[in-house]
Amino acid sequence: MKHRYRAHGLDVASEVELPLPPAPLPQGVPDLVLRHGEGRPVPGGRPPGRLLAELTGSDGVVFYSLGTDGQRTTLRYPALCEFTGDAGLAEVTARLHPGTDPGLLPVLAAGTLLAVRLMLRHHLVLHASAVQRDGRALAFVGASGMGKSTLAAALCGHGCGLVADDVLRVDRAGGELRVYPGSTESRLRTSARGLAETAPPSAVRPTADGRLALRPRVHADGPLPLAACVVPRPSRDAREVSVVRLPPSKAFLRLTQFPRVLGWRDPASMDRSFQALADLVERVPVFDATIPWGPPFRDDVLTDLLTTVT
């Protein structure tokens, strides 16, 4: 394999270049092998077998679907891309629909495919971006568009290191919860492009889904204890950071609103995820945080946020 990575605690061998930390000493059997197959039309119907997840628009059009017949599992984006592999998606072949931008493949592989692989192995996966500060991780959890990547990128310019973007694996180790390094880039929306203005050209690139990938200072040395989870509430009107710590029952309900893989319906993995999430909210503080929104962010806003939640 041309590329070897160590991301989310998995050894990944890939024919496709991915925005993931390189494996320091690749050895043994990878946890995920990704091959780039020949392009072919990707149909609009559901994959064969039992449906594990599906996301549709308000018009009923399928955005993606995930199905398994017990031997093979398929993650299908109609008319875009399809990932097909064994039951647990350990050996996967990716095929693009004719005319699809090849740059979309790394976005989907490093995002949804890895999230699905982790969930099929019954790991807790948060829809979160995380940064490292003082040897611990701070996670920003929320739906797309709530500012997770923007805050992570801003804090990386404020002395933190990027741990993961968009996909965050959480495991219990003894009495603490820890998270794993994932993506080496923050994928920013158009409104957050100002965060990349001072970065060297080699650290910035456009992505196939219309965003800007910024490669900040990265933490990729191994798992970190999880210090806190923050659900951001961006505000153009607020003048100062306002933080509320949620009791465990409300924290649990709040975090269940933001699944990384929307439309997930596999009972076994859902049950384990709910148990792991219940354990998380008992052990890790969860905050709702109203944040005066940038970019640019005032230095005192970022400092106050870090001081309040860590």
Rank of each mutant, 00 (worst) to 15 (best):
Y5M: 04
A7V: 08
H8S: 09
P19T: 03
P24Q: 06
G28C: 02
L34R: 00
R40I: 07
R50P: 00
L52F: 15
S58R: 09
S58K: 07
V61G: 04
F63G: 12
L66S: 09
T73H: 04
A79S: 13
E82R: 15
F83N: 08
D86K: 10
G88L: 12
L89G: 08
A90S: 15
A94H: 02
T100W: 03
G103A: 11
L118D: 08
A137K: 02
L138I: 09
A143R: 07
G147L: 00
G147S: 01
K148F: 00
T150F: 03
H158L: 03
G175K: 12
L177E: 03
V179H: 01
P181G: 07
E185D: 08
E185H: 13
L188C: 04
R189H: 06
R189C: 01
E197D: 14
P201Q: 00
S202H: 13
A203I: 01
R205Y: 11
D209C: 06
R215C: 14
R217K: 11
A220M: 10
C229D: 04
S235V: 01
K250T: 08
R254P: 04
P259I: 04
G263Q: 12
S269T: 14
D271T: 08
L280W: 04
R283H: 11
P296M: 07
R298G: 15
V301L: 09
L302H: 06
T307E: 12
T308D: 09
